[in-house]
Amino acid sequence: MQLLIISILLVFPTLILLRKQVLAILILSINLLSNLYFIIPFYTETSIPSTDNHFKISSINLLSSNSNRELTINYIENEDPDVLILMELTPEWLSSLEPVIGNYQYTEIVPRNDNFGIALLSKYQMKSSVDYFSLNDKPSIIGNVSGMEQEFTVVATHPVPPIGQQSFLNRNKQLSNIVKDIPRFSKNLIIAGDFNTSSFSPHFDSLLKQNLKDSRIGFGLLPTWPADHNVLQTTLDHFLVSKHLQVTKRATGPDIGSDHLPITMTIGLKTL
């Protein structure tokens, strides 16, 4: 999006100052059109199907150092998701969120003193386990959720940020290893969390080749990071879903004091 905006801003100066420089104008036009090609699908209207039931899921990167607990609690209470994912969950955060967590009967909670604590909470029956996807000591959670006559697999994950070559490789391997395990998951699959990658990365694109779709299509880019720098924001927090699932709502939440905005998605379900 930032490249598209820059291209648009450069159009008129280029036409005025370099009107005889055909090559410069051609290159700028190609750049503008190529960026439009990737962005337009996110804003193309999609028809919202008529469904009998809805399944709502929220994902929040809390930011381990965030001390503004009330904003986070208010967001969770207002959204009231059926399934809730929490990342950067520290013991202190866990204590603060106990009233909210009490609303969820089924939980898998892994608090940590670093930035990789994680939790998966469900109001529907859930069988869950912690998985490291054969890579490192950063936990992900797999939850098999039964609700509204449907079976879902929710994979909550938080790969390391690509700071340095080894971290870059570890992030890519973790996402790749999750995809390799797709055959053992339910046909109704949701992979969610802070992926620490933009959707315009080729490593993200490779995930979409596995019968998955980006839940934002038709709802906008919905950037999430950094929360307090609108112009520079990109999308690091994602919901990937099985292609046959119908996303009826997809949105980012308000600034809750974290460096990430929270995200929520609703899937429309037909009763079997």
Rank of each mutant, 00 (worst) to 15 (best):
S58Q: 02
G143F: 00
K180I: 01
D214V: 02
Y124A: 11
I76H: 13
S140A: 15
L236S: 07
N230P: 11
L236W: 08
L135I: 15
K173R: 12
I76Q: 01
G253Q: 05
L272Q: 10
T90F: 12
D131R: 15
I40G: 04
P111M: 06
L120M: 06
H244D: 08
H244T: 01
Q210I: 01
I27P: 02
I6G: 12
D259F: 03
L175M: 14
R171M: 01
S201V: 06
I101K: 06
S199P: 05
G253E: 08
A192L: 01
A119P: 04
G117I: 07
L84K: 10
T248A: 04
G193A: 03
N230Q: 13
T266I: 15
L63E: 04
D181Q: 15
L175R: 00
A251D: 09
E92S: 14
P161V: 09
L17Q: 10
I178E: 02
I60K: 08
L3V: 13
A227K: 05
S201E: 02
S134L: 07
I39L: 12
R216H: 07
G257R: 11
S186Q: 12
F185W: 04
P13G: 12
S59K: 07
S47G: 08
L207T: 07
L169A: 08
D237Q: 06
H203D: 05
E98T: 14
P99K: 12
F239E: 00
Y124E: 00
S167R: 13
I57Q: 00
S122K: 13
I25L: 14
S215H: 09
I40S: 06
I141D: 00
N113D: 13
T252K: 13
Q105T: 09
S199K: 04
S95H: 14
D228W: 02
G147R: 07
Y124I: 03
S47M: 12
S58M: 03
F38E: 01
R171P: 08
K138P: 00
I118C: 10
V145S: 02
F38T: 05
L240N: 03
D214R: 10
K173A: 09
K270P: 01
N78F: 00
H203S: 09
F195L: 15
T248Y: 06
T248L: 06
I76C: 08
T107N: 11
I30P: 02
T224Y: 05
D255I: 12
G220L: 10
V22Q: 13
E70T: 15
M126T: 11
I256G: 05
G143H: 02
L32M: 08
V179A: 15
A119T: 10
A251L: 11
S64R: 15
F152K: 03
A156F: 05
